[in-house]
Each structure stands twice: as C-alpha cells, then as structure tokens.
C-alpha cells in the first residue's frame, strides 16, 4: 500500500494486436489438452507407478503444492511424438510441453492435489519462434504450436483453496505470475480443463476470473499501483523547515 502523494505513471507497453490473439485462439480452439495414453498392459502400469512413486519420494517432506521441478532434471525440453504412452514417456530423453504438462497434472493428482490440465497462449519474438519452428521441423515434428509470434503451451493448474488456482509451467518450472504485462513470454490467454465443471464454474487466479473449459484472454495489468492511492491520512502539521540552517559538511580526515 502506498500512502504518499500522487505520483504519475508513464506506461508504454507494446501490446500485441488483439486480432493476432483471436486468430491464435481460433487456431487452437479444438486442441485437446495433452494426455498420456495407456497400453492397458503392465508396461504402462509400471511406468505410471514408477513416476508417481518417484514424485512422492522427491518431495522430501515438502508441501504437496510444491511444483514437481524434478521432472525437468529428468527430461530435456524438445519435440515429442504423439500419441504418447506412459511407458514411452518415462524412457524419453526429451519431452515437449504437452508431455511435461500432462505428467505434472497426473503427479499433482497422485499427491491428492486438485489439478487441472491447462493450456496457454504466450507471446514471443520472431527469432524465438523461427528457431523453434526449425528445430521442430528438423526432428520431423509439426510446429503447429507456433503461429504469428504466438505459441501454444501447456501446463497445469492446481487448486490452493476452493477454485483459487495457481498455474504451473512444467517446462519452465515456475508458477506463472498472475500479473501479466505482455511482452516476451507474456501470457495472453489460458484455458483450464475441468471435466466436472458446469457453465457457472469459474476459477480465480490472482485478479483474474477464468471460466472453466474455455479460452480466456488474460487482462494485462497496469503497472500503476503506485498511482492508486487512498486519501492521504491527515498528518500533524509540522513547522516548516525551509529556512532551517543546514550545517556545513565536516572535512574528512
């Protein structure tokens, strides 16, 4: 809380054209959240039991809401082939954001945390998206997740209390900041999947209210909290000091 006099803010954010975002949402509207397939045999059952067991062990008595960062020590980020089965995923050296997001979602669930698959649309610069497009192409994977400076990304959302959520970026291994200013790596839109939700289900993420199962544009924060001030408290009047004598500086020894 800022209790001082009013201060002006000059914010000059280059905003991504809304039309780009609309196009991105349209492009990824029918993308399902990634999930691990199961062969229905022991191979996948062993893999699933192994990774959930490792996750619980890796918690080391930490809080169940601790993000499973250890996954990224195990897997590099890179192109993945889909569909992906549990038994394949645990033996891969690299996983894409969909696989990492799907795994983290399952790990949270196994810990007893309410978790939801999450999809994101992020903004990046051209050199980044071009680089990714080439590396995905070289691996024989379709860079369908890149479009006009935007990327499609996946993670998971965990409920901390009621429908208040935190968004876990399993690839970057951090909790996404609810205060979004746009720009490089800025989150522009989010979709949270809750198969049990009805039309009225809304998640709270910071100041945002996110309806379940539909793309939601993330409102940009105004970097102006310092200019939002309550009425200043009346201050006891002090004698003016403008004419007070100011001492000369002493000379350093």
């Amino acid at each position: 809380m800022y209790l001082g006099e009013g201060k002006n803010m000059v914010i000059d954010l280059e905003e991504t054209a809304d039309s780009n975002l609309d196009a991105g949402i349209a492009r990824w509207e029918n993308f399902p959240a990634s999930y691990m397939s199961h062969h229905g045999t022991a191979c996948c059952e062993i893999a699933r039991e192994w990774i959930t067991g490792m996750d619980y062990s890796q918690l080391n008595a930490g809080h169940p809401l601790t993000g499973p960062r250890w996954l990224r020590k195990l897997f590099k980020w890179g192109p993945s082939k889909w569909p992906m089965h549990w038994c394949q995923a645990v033996r891969e050296e690299t996983l894409d954001c969909g696989a990492l997001g799907a795994l983290s979602h399952q790990l949270f669930l196994a810990r007893g945390v309410r978790s939801f698959a999450a999809q994101f649309i992020l903004e990046f610069n051209d050199v980044s998206t071009r680089h990714w497009g080439e590396s995905w192409g070289a691996a024989g994977c379709d860079p369908h997740w890149i479009s006009n400076g935007l990327i499609y990304h996946e993670g998971s959302a965990v409920a901390v209390e009621g429908n208040e959520v935190k968004l876990w970026d399993a690839t970057a291994t951090w909790w996404i900041n609810p205060k979004q200013f746009g720009g490089y790596a800025g989150l522009l839109a989010v979709r949270l999947f809750d198969p049990t939700a009805d039309a009225s289900t809304v998640f709270t993420w910071g100041e945002h209210r996110i309806p379940a199962n539909t793309w939601h544009k993330v409102a940009r924060a105004k970097a102006d909290f310092a200019s939002k001030k309550p009425a200043p408290k009346p201050r006891a009047k002090r004698r003016t000091r403008t004419t007070k004598k100011v001492a000369e500086s002493a000379v350093a020894a």
């Binding site: 006099e5 201060k7 803010m9 205060k179 970097a223 909290f225 310092a226 201050r235 403008t242």
Partner: peptide
Amino acid sequence: AATGIPAEKTTGSGE
C-alpha cells in the same frame, strides 16, 4: 516528513 519541504514528484516506470 522530517523537514516539511515538499518533495519533487517521483515518476514511476513499471512495477
């Protein structure tokens, strides 16, 4: 507060 001399405004840039 200590001097009663008004401070120049501080312009913010971001958070």
